[in-house]
Computed example of a mutant assay.
Amino acid sequence: MRIALLLTLCLLALSGCAGRQAPPAGPAPAPLPPAGTLLDSSGRPIDEAEFTALAAKADVILLGETHDSACDHEQQARLLRLMSGPWATTQAPAVGLEMVPYTGQEALTRFNRGETSLADLPQALDWEEVWGYPFDLYEPVFAAARELDLPVYGLNAPHSVVRAVAHKGLSGLSPEERALLPQKIIAPEQAQLDELREVFSMHGAMRGAGGTDDDAAMKKAMEARFNRFAEAQSVWDTTMAKEALSVHAATGRPVAVIAGGGHVENGWGIAHRLHVLAPEVRVLLVMPWRGDGAIPSGYADVLYVCPLVHRFRLGMTLRQEGGRVVVQEVAPDSLAARAGLTVGDVVTRAGDEPVSGMGDLHAAGFAAVRDRKPLRLTVERGGKSVPVSIDLPPMGRP
């Protein structure tokens, strides 16, 4: 579950990397149910009517995602339709977006009024600059909102301000920057803070931050960086919670929030801030499920099944399924193609470590970049183990 939190760290650091996911403990997980299967918190399959009944009891429905997963966004759009369809017993939701700051609402308001087409929306939002992930991944969500006449709202703090917090802390903001944030930034619960610290430490180790464990100055610098990172995470979550409550009050609708899983899982991120700001608010946590082991207690109220697919900058697209990582696509003339990687290869080792999930590959990739060495993989192909060595460009990222 750390993959979503580490992705947030990478976004704040402007590194564009994906996160690490802890490998499943014990026996290999059972085959993943079909994409779109809905599960309750225990892993029991539920039908669409059950989901709709659960959503009808909530004021805020947090729909978590991995940002570059097309399957996740298709399922989010499907859930919006369920909450707006014949089984719905409450008013159809408004849609709140992590991807768009509340300062960009004017463009969304024109979209809500039908004045801006879906085709013109990316330019109106300056999507590539504001968010960066391809708009076509999110198009199903916007298309569903347009089809169902669901008003869409930006919830996030301006990204430039969040990045400023990550680089210089809340105390380093200019008065103009600070005025764009909630007056009170709600700190993480201890459990989230512990998780953030573990993820931050792992990220630093993978990047090879320099210095030694005995270097007092380095320790002090890393602690200051962590504190800024935690502040930035809190700014993100507090602002989105505050804005979601404002949308709920202004529209009288439940609010379906589209946000990265790190802001949703375990109720630590947005949900914690919602309950501090409005203790009576009813929240439903919805997360994607990849089939990686048992569902942790408290992780989410509802899960939708989507295999994890990630496109690496080395030119390979990998799919995680049932504790295996399979090559789904190799871009022609890419670094991966030139190294001999082929569709259908099963990645079994990265460096000297076994591979059971995407996170293992990211860790190996960071280590290779740090050590300025090729990324060494072992793949299973036609019943044989085949070594593959992918050269990395200077300062490249996996």
Rank of each mutant, 00 (worst) to 15 (best):
V286Y: 11
D301Q: 04
W87H: 15
D391A: 13
K220F: 08
T378V: 15
D371Y: 02
T239P: 07
T348E: 15
S356Q: 14
K184W: 05
E321S: 10
I258R: 00
V161H: 01
V281S: 06
I61G: 01
A368W: 03
T52Y: 01
G19K: 00
V60Y: 03
M222D: 13
R2S: 15
A18F: 13
R338D: 07
F229H: 00
R110I: 03
G396M: 06
A56N: 11
W131H: 00
D194G: 06
M83G: 11
Y102A: 08
H263F: 04
L150P: 00
R178V: 06
S334W: 05
R313Y: 00
L6T: 12
H275G: 02
L6Q: 15
L148Q: 09
A367Y: 05
E231G: 01
A53K: 11
G210K: 08
E65K: 03
E106F: 05
A164D: 08
P394A: 14
G291N: 09
W268L: 09
R146K: 15
I46W: 01
Q123I: 05
T103L: 11
A144Y: 02
F229T: 04
V283W: 00
V283F: 03
G323P: 04
Y304F: 15
E50F: 00
G383K: 05
D360K: 04
L314Y: 03
P354A: 06
D371R: 09
D345V: 02
M222C: 07
P279V: 04
A331S: 10
V165F: 00
S234I: 04
Q233H: 11
E195M: 13
L245E: 06
R311L: 10
G382H: 06
M99H: 11
V235E: 05
G114S: 10
L38H: 02
T239V: 08
M316C: 12
W87E: 15
P393K: 12
L32F: 11
A88Q: 01
I258V: 13
A209Q: 11
N227Q: 14
G382N: 07
C306G: 10
M1C: 10
L335Q: 05
F312G: 02
A35R: 11
V302H: 05
A55L: 07
T103F: 05
E74T: 08
P86F: 11
K384Y: 06
A232H: 02
M99T: 06
A58Q: 06
V379K: 02
D213S: 13
V95A: 07
V325M: 12
V235K: 02
A94M: 08
L32W: 08
K219M: 09
L193N: 08
V283Q: 01
S246W: 06
S117Q: 10
D40G: 08
Q183R: 15
M287Y: 02
P288D: 06
R381Q: 12
E231A: 09
L303V: 00
H248A: 15
A339D: 07
G172K: 07
P387R: 04
A70I: 09
D59W: 02
W87N: 14
D360F: 05
A368D: 06
G322N: 15
H203M: 15
V152T: 03
R2T: 15
I390K: 00
P93G: 09
Q91M: 13
M202I: 05
R324K: 13
